[in-house]
Design a binder for these strands. Structure first.
Lengths: 349, 349
DNA sequence: CCGACTAATGACAGCGCTGTCATATCGAAC
DNA sequence: GTTCGATATGACAGCGCTGTCATTAGTCGG
């Protein structure tokens, strides 16, 4: 019924150890032998038993995906990307929702790594960016890849996939500037997200490069939530001298800002431009549709997973093998501007 | 370092087989012995190795979650619920995104069950409701639980967690009726979803019970998507005799309807009431906030997972044991009406 | 207090694979 | 045609657990 390594060995006329060598891409197998085995594998549609591999070997064929983000679209995109990478390489995925604010992250991660024998960890923000988590994974002797906002890589670039929030925010701000906006409100995301700071930085740089002043009262603290967007926009719009455009740090906040503008009977984009960040599905489901920055989460996750897996697989291999395997994996992403209907020319004075 | 069954056995002064009996809740262990073992387990913080269990035993400690739904919030809610149930019982979860329309579902599922040795399957709509899938899982000699719209249980209630879309839709429609609406447009979801039919049925029954005619031209086919909601609402509102309320089959469509109304400068809910279904997060992020039916997805999924696990675990056990274990798991859910701001009294003629 | 029976416990093999180490095979140099 | 030094291959144990079956301890009636 179920085909095992023994069946393959019998068919190919070799020992099971040779089959093992072939499927693990180990050296010291003659090309002719390798071919015989591969043919048998194909003929029988053999797939190694993960449980047995995990049990027998020193290495593990399981990686874990740890997330701590309320945005379902974000998580699913990431998860699907990781899943693809795992499937392509015959690995298993352990899903682990967590909470970076919890005091027990250390124990939690430690337990996960030591007990579940995972080969690697893929971490997403904000989990991937909190000090306690970084410290823990570094100390844990486990391969990991942190998906982070560029500034959060610190001196750990080799274990990071970086998203350049600052550059993307610069582009978005410049887009507004080109539309003639001189005073642009900025709604910050949560402090704990490094992306919040990156996006603000991009906004600031764009204004500076355009020779425009940075008005602190146009920059409001907030969180990456709809409600926060509503409040921030209200505050901005009810001030004495409201801006002609609002840059919300993510689409959810932008949707909130849209909501607030509507409550105040402000026409978008005629009287006010609003832009978001992330290009999540519902940036296309607002009215009007949001101008935003597209972040290829699926692709980012796929690269992150590919990276952990290459790290994990090269553990016992030669050093040069390691270098060559990690090559070709994109490590930096810059979300790209997507212009839709929520941004328009600045109104005449 | 890692604590195994041997360590526990040594500490408790029994054989490993006895430890195995205790952790698997098998009979024929004297209470005193059981306690000794349990104490040792607790003292050493022993957790059985899943890979070894999967490899050694005839049964598996892995269940799979199969989904085929573009709604990320839905999937994540379900997934988290299943994860909780798995964790509580020491099972592992295999995530398997799929496509019910693909011709290879049969092979895909077969391969999943036979190769990955999963103990059970949790299926969500629309995957859980397609004929090919149902046929396959029935033929596969694997425990499964289908989360379905009530009408889709057919003669398979024992393997279903049912959501009573019809009853919930009845409640929603009645809510509109009580607000004085006489003519209510209905935007259908995709044909392949059984929930589409259930929701329509509830709508029809409510009208009938109120002695109101069912106007076929107020019922529009569509899909569970934003764009479909836009189109449907437009068609309804541009007709000669538009309704005073629109019942969109889910929140995403309702958001689309809101969008369309906005385009046509129709005030919600003053001129038109719009209601959704599902209570997904963004039903609170539209303007105005949506009146909808709350569906406890997390809870539903938890019950579904608990049900497969109880089925799987009782496999070798006595028949009466089986019955008792499945007791206490809720098998039917009716989404409950949540009134927000998108529904209001019917406008005067 | 003894045999007959049942309940409790343990010894051992083996799940499918990998790691270690021994053996066999090959090629090149003499 | 040998010998040596790789390189290629195989035998075997064992990962941590469960299933089977043998063994031991306990219970009851007479």
């Amino acid at each position: 019924m179920k085909v095992t390594i023994n069946d393959v060995a019998a068919m190919a006329g070799v020992s099971i150890k040779t089959v093992s060598r072939v499927i693990n891409n180990e050296p010291s197998v003659r090309p002719a032998t390798r071919k015989k085995v591969m043919d048998a594998v194909a003929a029988l549609n053999y797939q190694p038993n993960l449980a047995a591999r995990n049990l027998a070997g020193t290495r593990s064929y399981t990686i874990a995906f740890i997330y701590d983000n309320p945005n379902a679209y974000y998580v699913i995109d990431m998860q699907n990307g990781i899943l693809e990478a795992c499937k392509a390489r015959g690995y298993e995925l352990l899903i682990h929702p967590s909470n970076s604010k919890s005091a027990s992250v250390h124990d939690e991660l430690k337990n996960l790594v030591e007990h579940s024998k995972v080969a690697g960890l893929v971490l997403t923000p904000p989990f991937s960016e909190t000090a306690a988590v970084i410290e823990t994974v570094k100390s844990l002797n486990v391969d990991y890849v942190r998906i982070v906002s560029a500034a959060a890589a610190h001196e750990d670039e080799e274990n990071c996939i970086q998203v350049d929030d600052s550059a993307a925010a610069y582009d978005i701000t410049q887009h507004l500037l080109q539309l003639g906006h001189k005073r642009i409100g900025f709604l910050c995301g949560g402090e704990e997200h490094v992306s919040t700071h990156g996006r603000l930085d991009g906004y600031r740089r764009a204004l500076q490069d355009a020779g425009l002043p940075i008005e602190d009262n146009l920059i409001l603290k907030g969180e990456y939530s709809f409600d926060s967007g509503v409040e921030g926009a209200k505050a901005l719009l009810q001030s004495d001298n409201p801006p002609s455009a609002i840059f919300a740090s993510n689409d959810e906040m932008a949707a909130g800002a849209l909501f607030a503008a509507r409550l105040m009977h402000i026409e978008i984009p005629q009287q006010l431009s609003i832009v978001g960040f992330e290009d999540s599905p519902f940036s296309r489901q607002t009215w009007p549709k949001l101008t935003t920055a597209h972040q290829p989460n699926n692709e980012i996750a796929k690269c992150a997973a590919a990276l952990v897996l290459s790290k994990a697989r090269s553990k016992g291999a030669t050093e040069n093998g390691k270098a060559s395997k990690e090559a070709g994996i994109q490590r930096e992403f810059t979300p790209s501007l997507v212009v839709r209907d929520s941004s328009g020319p600045a109104p005449k004075q």
